[in-house]
Design a protein around this nucleic acid. Structure first.
Lengths: 248, 248
DNA sequence: CCTCTCAATATGTATATACATAATCACCAT
DNA sequence: ATGGTGATTATGTATATACATATTGAGAGG
């Protein structure tokens, strides 16, 4: 309630108030002190607690909401969100790097390239509202002589027009895109499938053998950029994800 | 370049100014009109262009910076960032929540429970240096009447002594641990396998059918806590990972 | 008892303002 | 030339204020 005359005599670090509110609250949530469903103090209460303006509190809470830790409801307040899910930083390496880390020669080979107007399936995969030009690619990543992964990709040419001029004969579209398009969001879907006859054929495995499928959708500031589906033979691939639960 | 006094006569949607500045700029970046390294107009210029206060512009630019699209430098201005490396936030939900989200009844059932001194394999899985007491558990997660996932877990009793007193007959060890042990690090390994005869039997699927395997190792402040291996029938499970680069 | 309306409330968005801070530039003295 | 010094500039953070908007809850009216 009082003016801030205590100048943080002890562990006085140069942390902004904004940051402190943020970390205080996420700590409470992550530690379980405030379980899912718990109502977070109202903005005006936090205003009093931290002796700051509502704008500062509001900014911090809005950020927590965007991060998915809390849910805000007008007139009701802010609440700790239910999905107390564990978040992990999953690093999906460039396939080339992955292959070369195994001491094998990397090679990419195009199987198919098609420029067309997006059909219904394309629009579903890319989450596109309207029809537009897309580039559909299929290719194989090799580790030494053996196929390592099959890639099936859609590129939204409305978002990345230059991609339409590329042949992608022996350069993989992934690194090409990464080097050109800044992306702001991605979604992965990971699952297991049995190899279809066709996939078994190109990957040189038995039909019905288990495969790991990684699908990735990428957005650059609201705009869908690309959708890609990697299929790995089960033996060749393990995804590794490491996680430290720090909140920014 | 001119002031926007046109009040969006046409597709006038209730979009906040904040949102409009945000999408305008990211569109410019995305389209390549502003390539990496390009200097974004100064806040005071955008203030004039959008005829709004600096705070509004600042908020939008700060958000773009947090999203990793631009980089801000004092005295110099804001610049389009070079594309970043890939990392993804993978959310692994509590199985109960996942099952209940499907509208099915959740149930956990213990298959096996063994308290013993860690053997060589245990120490590998837990990354333990010395031998010590561990709890080895096997159990099934049900969605309705059908098995949803098989769980095989090791708990380091040196780190979580109370776990040794628990039976885990029908409460799953995952939530039990989460509620008790603050964990500071986790590592996931994700891969596909063909169901062994035994796994096929307990999961009620065909032998050789593809399965998704998620292994998680958890540490609490340097101490290994638990290692768990989930096996999901391929049809029942897709991991979804969402990602926004860099957090605030 | 039910519905409709209106006031109260918490959040959402925006403004004007102020001062802090880091980086750069121009200038001056050596 | 060279090195320091201070002014300038753009962003960083915070405040007080205002009004919009969604939602809840209580009370009026049927």
């Amino acid at each position: 309630m009082s003016i801030i005359e205590t100048v943080d005599a002890e562990g006085s670090e140069a942390v902004s108030l904004h940051q402190r509110i943020l970390s205080d609250i996420s700590e409470k949530i992550l530690s379980g002190a405030w379980p899912p469903g718990h109502r977070i103090p109202f903005e005006h209460e936090l205003t009093a607690e931290y002796n700051c303006s509502r704008m500062t509190v509001n900014k911090a809470l809005s950020q927590l909401a965007k991060a998915g830790l809390i849910e805000r409801r007008r007139r009701s307040g802010s609440f700790v969100r239910r999905p107390q899910s564990q978040a992990a930083v999953l690093e999906i390496h460039d396939i080339r790097i992955e292959v070369e880390a195994l001491g094998l020669a990397y090679r990419y080979q195009r199987l198919e390239r098609l420029k067309r107007r997006s059909n219904a399936e394309d629009r579903t995969l890319l989450e596109l509202a309207a029809s537009g030009p897309v580039l559909a690619l299929k290719g194989l990543h090799f580790a030494g002589q053996r196929p390592f992964a099959h890639e099936q990709r859609l590129i939204n040419l409305a978002a990345v027009a230059e991609a339409g001029e590329e042949e992608f004969l022996d350069i993989a579209p992934g690194p090409w895109l990464i080097g050109r398009v800044p992306w702001s969001q991605a979604e992965h879907r990971i699952r297991a499938i049995a190899a279809s006859d066709h996939i078994a054929d190109v990957l040189d495995i038995e039909a019905g053998a288990p495969c790991l499928v990684v699908e990735r959708r990428t957005w650059s500031a609201e705009h869908p950029v690309t959708h890609v589906r990697f299929i790995y033979p089960a033996e060749s691939h393990t995804l590794v994800a490491r996680f430290t639960p720090s909140q920014g």
